[in-house]
Amino acid sequence: MFRHDPEGPPCSNMENLLQQVADGSAKGLKKWYAVAHANRCTHCGNFLSRMTRTVSALRSAQKVEDEEVFNRLLNGSWKTAVSEATSDEKKA
């Protein structure tokens, strides 16, 4: 069934497939089927286009890295645990 009125939720049987197309995990026939449906069904077409933009925004979101925090973490108390484990191993 294809829906042509402008707004509404995607077809319930298509939603999972459309999510997979949006994140690139759908391949081959699955992808073709979902895209072909979305081209004819306004609700699913809108859903696919918005979901693709949401996923792409998430992927390109800035990844904030804090050098100071990383240095503190890299020299944290876990190092003691590692050296204790190594010395236990040597004793054994």
Binding site: R72, L73, G76, S77, W78, K79, A81
Partner: peptide, 8 residues
């Protein structure tokens, strides 16, 4: 920090 300690 706690995770790294437990993982170590």
């Amino acid at each position: 920090a706690q995770t790294l300690f437990l993982a170590a």
